[in-house]
Amino acid sequence: MKKLSGDKINYADLIKWIFALLIIVLIVLKFTGNRVSNADFKDVKKAVEKTVKDDDTVLDGDNVMVKRLYGIDPADYDGIMLKYPSTNMNVNEVFLVKLKDVKQQDQILEAVEKRLETQKNNFENYGTNQYSILKKSVTDVQGNYIMFVVNEKTDPIVKAFEKSLK
């Protein structure tokens, strides 16, 4: 490193601020991506439930159903809501989880992936309509919240979910 004094540029100072800029960019990206939300689970659940309240193709799932369909223990998480298909011919579903720690993201994403795979296998050969709905499913990861939605119109549900986290 060249030693400089007086009014000459000090390259170490300059490079330092380039690193600072990269750190700021990384932080901004983190803020827009994976931010942990302090929103109360009850409020988020309420906001999401509102969007599916008239949907008679889904039923409320209890802890046993969560274990059965997703293979996870609800006690390991801060909050879980499941709306599962009311009949074998429906695929509409909403699965909302508040994580205790963002490190749990992988477990939930794996469980969701398995669930989606199972449903796709169930409908691949005879339920064209259901299969196309499954293909439109959305898994929305927002830091400590994850929502999995299978619906013809996922947009309003996702918007309500994301809005409730702010």
Partner: peptide, 22 residues
Amino acid sequence: MILLSVGFNFFAARGIGQHIES
């Protein structure tokens, strides 16, 4: 993040050191 922090603080230390030396 830690690698960027290492980069930032290494050049910060070098810069401070150079100003002190001069």
